[in-house]
Amino acid sequence: MSETTTAKGLADPAARRQLMSGVEPEPGSSKPDPILKVDNIVRQFGGITAVDVDHLEVQRGIITALIGPNGAGKTTFFNLITGFDRPTSAGRGAHWSFDGATLDRTSASKVAKSGMVRTFQLTKALSRMTVMDNMMLGAQNQAGENLAKCLIKPFWSAQEKQVEEKALALLDRFSLLEKRKDYAGSLSGGQRKLLEMARALMSDPKMIMLDEPMAGVNPALTQSLLGHIQSLRDEGTTVLFVEHDMHVVRHISDWVVVMAEGKLVAEGPADSVMSNTAVIDAYLGAHHDTDLGDDALLSDATLEQLEAEVAAEEAEREEEQRS
C-alpha cells in the first residue's frame, strides 16, 4: 500500500470508515498501514506500573484518540514514545518504531525531527519570549540555528522570511495574530494550548501527538480547533490525541484506543468502543449501567452551562487585564 494513496483518499469519511472496517476492534489489533508500532513498553515508578503496553499500532492518516481515566498512563505513554522518558523494559523487548524507523534509543529531539511532534498536557510556553519567537522556534532545519552560520545573515535571512510568513499564517489560523508581540508568559491557559499546537505545526509533522489539547479552551474555540485538527488530517497528517471529553472524541476521532491502569483495554471506532464493557469498567468501576458515549452525560444543557462558566471566566480575566 503506497503512502500517497492512503493519505490522499482519507479526506473522505467513507474512505476512512472503509479503511478501518477491516480492523478488528481489539486491543493491539494490526492496522492496514501503521505509522507507529509499539511493542512491549513497560514503565514502572517504584512499585506502580504506569504503562504496560504489549502491542499497539496507530494507523497513518487518521485521527486516533487515546482515552482513559486519570492516571491511566496516557501522558507517561506519550513521554515514552517521544523519547522524554525511558521504558523500564528498555533492552528487554521494548521496541517501537515510527514511519519505519526504530525509535528504541532515539532522543526526544530526534524523534521530533523524524516527524513525530508532541504537545504537553501542562503547556510549555517559552514565557519570556514573544509569541512570534515561540512560533519561529518551531521550524525545522533552520540554517541560522547553526552556530557556524548564524553570524552571517545572508545565510539565513531568506529562510527566516519564509518561516516568518508561515508563523503568521498559523497564528492567524489559531486566532493569536494580535498577540504575536506579547510575551508568551502573558497568555491565558487556553491561549497557551493554542500556541503550543500552532508551534508544533510549524515543523509540518507527519504525526502530531496532542496531550489534552482542548482542556481549558473555550467551547467556541474548541469547535474551530476541532476543525483545524480535521483539516490537518485531511492534509495527510496523522493525529494521536488524549482527551477526556467524550463528546469531542466521538465527534472527530476515526479510531479510539482505551487505556486503564497502564494497559490497553479496548480499541475500536468511537461509537462502539464506548459501549464496550471493559471500557465502562475502567471508567466507572464494576457497578454501572451507563453508556459512556451516552449523550445524556453530556447533554446540551450541561454543555451550555459549561459554556456560560467559561464565558464568565473569560470576562473576569479581561477585567483583570484592564485593571
Binding site: 523519547g83 526526544a108 521530533a112 517559552l126 514565557s127 522556534l137 503550543e196 508551534r199
Partner: peptide, 11 residues
Amino acid sequence: EDEDAMRSLGK
C-alpha cells in the same frame, strides 16, 4: 525558558 519544549520542537 524550557528545555523540554525545545526538545519537543526537535532542537
